[in-house]
Design a protein around this nucleic acid. Structure first.
Lengths: 207, 207
DNA sequence: CCGGAAGTCAACCTTTCGGTTGATGCCCGG
DNA sequence: CCGGGCATCAACCGAAAGGTTGACTTCCGG
């Protein structure tokens, strides 16, 4: 029996996951969480085998941060990320935070069940689109943005100044500028708005 | 008995909606559709009372286009939009296409059920965040950009510098700056990347 | 164990952008 | 016919961003 915790801020999605997972005789949903903080608490209290984790919650912890907190201790549950988004920044942040798998919400119930079993056994499961993106990075490492660079660029795209970004990420402005210079070089541009436009075209940041 | 058709590209969300709606004794889910095209076909074939419509599908018809097709004939079903997104562009497109209501996916099951009953009776139901956005538009109509301002902003979003924009539009840099200052004031921001982000959120420039 | 990539930061300089003031002409509607 | 929004431009100043150099640490892979 695989014990599951569902972490998603949408009640409808939680119900959908419950319904889909209930069809599998060896799955048991032991809890739900609507925020990142609750997910961390419940993961400790309920000791599930696998946490199904969304990446975006409203305010508070992000899914990646919650994932890091849950997987930091030894012997903790596996985290299977289940989200709508497949930008480089999302994927890298989740994997770097310790996620065992990364699925997209348009997955079939059958694929989802298979991924849960993989995660429970410690095997990694990636959605095809996600796997393709990661392989693409390996093939042309020079062209791909690093995690930190992608994070900075996301905040640039959101309209933040270097000053604001440095505060948000606990960096100096010098570091933010340093990352951006590298981003410009990799994308072949020379200013922030052009970088955002180029990154959008290539699917490097979320829409 | 209210007959429902669910149109969403995510199997998990469809299952969740089925589960949530099944709790209401006077609801009956008569069909599901995973694309905009299928939604239009099923709406004709099954003659539901209310269609729960997502706005984003993969390729093919968008939710707004499907909504237009479904509501164009007289006596057709009501369309209740149920989506994750609340940008001006999404909301206006859906309403203009004939949607009776607009809910967000983080809605409670109870709110969803109430909105379905409202829609079935022809009453409009809007999520609070959506209603607020629409009222904000009515309150400050001056916030709309002039043609020239929008043109300049589009080029900013494409990553051009003021210098490049001035050449492209046969203007002086002073004029470009002048337009941008007005754009910033109307959007409530103070730099170009934030203006692009704000304009995207409000659907003021094309994706 | 060593080289390289990633991440962090400082100092310095140049260019661009943001913001203001003021000015001209046009066209529309009260 | 005149106020006001729109569009155009100039000159100016301070702030932000862009670019370079150099330096330090950590982590990973050969």
């Amino acid at each position: 029996m695989i014990r599951l915790l569902i972490a998603d801020d949408h009640p409808i999605v939680r119900s959908g996951l419950r319904a889909v997972l209930a069809a599998e005789p060896d799955f048991e949903v032991v809890g739900e969480a609507a925020t990142g903080e609750r997910a961390v608490e419940s993961a400790r209290a309920l000791a599930p085998d696998v946490v199904l984790m969304d990446l975006r919650f409203g305010p508070g912890l992000t899914g990646a941060e919650a994932t890091r907190a849950i997987t930091s201790g030894a012997g903790g549950p596996r985290v299977l990320v289940l989200t709508t988004y497949d930008s480089d920044a999302d994927i890298l942040a989740a994997i770097e935070a310790g996620a065992t798998g990364y699925l997209l919400k348009d997955a079939d119930p059958a694929d989802l069940a298979a991924a849960v079993r993989d995660a429970a056994a410690g095997r990694s499961a990636l959605a095809p689109a996600v796997a393709q993106r990661l392989l693409g990075r390996l093939r042309s490492p020079g062209a791909a943005l690093s995690l930190r660079e992608a994070e900075v660029l996301e905040l640039v795209a959101a309209g933040l100044s270097n000053q604001q970004i440095s505060k948000r990420l606990f960096l100096s402005q010098a570091t933010v500028k340093s990352h951006l210079v590298h981003v410009y070089a990799k994308l072949g541009v020379d200013n922030r708005t052009a970088a955002v436009a180029a990154a959008r075209e290539r699917g490097l940041i979320r829409p």
